[in-house]
Amino acid sequence: MKKKISYKDAGVDIEKADYAIASSRDVIQSTFNKNVLSSIGGFGAMYSIKDIVNQYDDPVMVQSIDGVGTKMAVAQKCNNFDFIGYDLVNACCNDVAATGAKPLTFLDYIASSSLEPKTVSEIISSIAVECKNLGVSLVGGGKLLKCRGLTIKMNMTWLVLLRGL
């Protein structure tokens, strides 16, 4: 006999995830420049490099991946996510700049078993604000939201990138 069980019954509430994305949309878009070709929700983040590459004789791409570690636990304890995105952006951009390079784009990945979409939205906004401050485009508009023990994939870009690395 067929069972009537919805995705929501299984704990995945896409509406809640949509809320997190929608409420950060403006601030994410504020980090975009003319080189950003993709829009939020696309499968792959596209960034035109023609104009930039033309300024270099022998351009080298520099990448760095990092996290905020258990500082997140302190942010949660204080219920203060205002600067956790600054931490993340600078942990990575400083690494890129330690080679002398200029950071251009940023992708992020949030995973949890119990995050509220409002908190996710605050974290993403904090990331976007610091990206904007630095002139870095937050091109990975995707989020991997693991709400209440389950996974909501909003965009595969980050997953693919993380696996690629």
Binding site: M61, Q63, I65, L88, V96, K102, F106, S113, L150
Partner: peptide, 27 residues
């Protein structure tokens, strides 16, 4: 990935990409 993360634990990861002229790399 249910079961990967414990209750109230969460992870925040980022990737930055930049560009530099090869001869100017600080190493």
């Amino acid at each position: 990935m249910p079961g990967t993360y414990h209750q109230n634990e969460y992870d925040l990861v980022g990737i930055a990409t930049g560009i530099i002229e090869r001869k100017n790399i600080v190493d």
